[in-house]
Computed example of a mutant assay.
Amino acid sequence: MKKLILPVVLLVILALLPVFQVNEYILHLGIMTFLYIVLSSSWNILGGLAGQVSFGFSVFWGMGAYTLALALKAGYSLFISILLAIILAAVFSVIIGFPTLRLRGPYFAIATIGVGEAVRVFMLVFAPGGASGVTVFDPTAFGKESHYYSAFVLLVIILAVVRWIMNSKFGLGLKAIKENEDAAIALGVNTIWLKVSAHLIAAVFIAIAGALYARYQMFIEPNGVFSFQQGISILMMPVIGGLGTFWGPIIGAIVFIVIQDQLMASYPELNMLMYGVLLVLIILFEGGGVVGFGKRIVRLLRKKPNSSAASNSVAANPSNH
């Protein structure tokens, strides 16, 4: 129960933020941060817990965005539009998940790149509006508060799901796959079913986030929502924060949004360079990301008092030597 106190307090503060009539820029940062935490935490289910590195989750981000845009344009309600995005993402995730998740290591990663690029090119040619994109209009979305609370509710749901998965038998199976898939199979773990299920859960949440993003931005185009850069961004956030942890994807998304917000306006060409530098530093010096670095600092701080106590003990009892 003690572990839940901090997350609950933070969520209550975030829920009350619009009540204090903060400026729209803060609400904008909140909306984008919530959506990117959803992306990061969703990817972490498959990539962090099961160790399956996918570069192709931009497919579901774009799929959710385009499904919502076209469904709203056809006259469907917001609820039905999001439901259609969920169904489409779930079906497509299973269709591509069963063959690609039988591959391992770099072969799976390369396959996801191929799928992502194939879908992007397909949408450029055949999607309504083509490369020019489409306008998204939801008559029920008035003011940033509506978008803020939509993203906030999705954030709460994904964090609850991730917490449940990490403490469940399902999550234990995913961790077993990451540690040694052959050993997991030998113990009777249905690894394909677990990986496809994790892929489906991640795809559905990313599609919903994509739908809410499209509703907020009011305009989308294939080279934006289906881009390879977007797939890289989704992957980088949990890596920066700390793979396989609860807080890692959250911290990674916050770092990502802060860097993006500060650099995009003044130095857009340095955006991905900064992320690349961060990624290299993490791989070289702290594979556990920001969370791993924090744990290392805590361990060092705990060792210092113990070292001092040991030194005092030796000084007080010189006869032992």
Score class of each variant (00 low, 15 high):
271 N>C: 01
253 A>H: 09
28 H>C: 03
307 S>Y: 11
140 T>C: 00
211 A>F: 03
23 N>E: 11
54 S>I: 03
281 L>F: 13
312 N>S: 14
162 V>W: 00
189 V>P: 01
218 M>K: 15
187 L>A: 11
126 F>C: 03
311 S>C: 02
216 Y>E: 04
66 Y>Q: 02
75 G>Q: 09
282 I>P: 00
316 A>Q: 14
33 T>N: 12
196 V>G: 05
118 A>S: 15
80 I>T: 14
18 P>T: 12
208 I>E: 03
204 V>Y: 00
283 I>Q: 10
78 L>H: 11
314 V>D: 08
271 N>H: 12
52 Q>C: 08
225 V>H: 00
216 Y>D: 12
63 M>V: 01
65 A>H: 05
271 N>G: 05
49 L>V: 12
3 K>S: 13
306 N>I: 11
47 G>E: 08
237 M>W: 04
44 N>V: 11
91 V>D: 00
234 I>T: 08
244 G>L: 01
63 M>L: 15
321 H>L: 13
304 K>E: 12
54 S>W: 04
107 Y>G: 08
249 P>R: 04
149 Y>V: 10
194 L>Y: 14
39 L>I: 06
276 G>I: 04
212 L>Y: 06
261 D>R: 13
264 M>I: 13
201 I>R: 02
299 R>M: 11
68 L>R: 00
38 V>H: 06
142 F>W: 10
115 V>T: 09
173 G>C: 06
70 L>E: 11
130 G>L: 07
98 F>Y: 15
276 G>P: 07
48 G>T: 07
285 F>I: 05
33 T>K: 05
8 V>G: 01
158 I>Q: 01
280 V>W: 02
80 I>V: 15
316 A>M: 13
195 K>F: 03
179 E>S: 13
295 K>S: 13
37 I>H: 08
237 M>K: 06
290 V>K: 04
211 A>P: 03
183 A>M: 12
5 I>H: 02
102 R>L: 03
79 F>G: 00
171 G>C: 09
135 T>K: 12
92 F>R: 03
249 P>H: 01
318 P>N: 13
220 I>H: 02
105 G>K: 10
247 W>R: 07
2 K>M: 07
121 V>N: 09
145 E>C: 01
105 G>H: 14
100 T>D: 00
120 R>M: 13
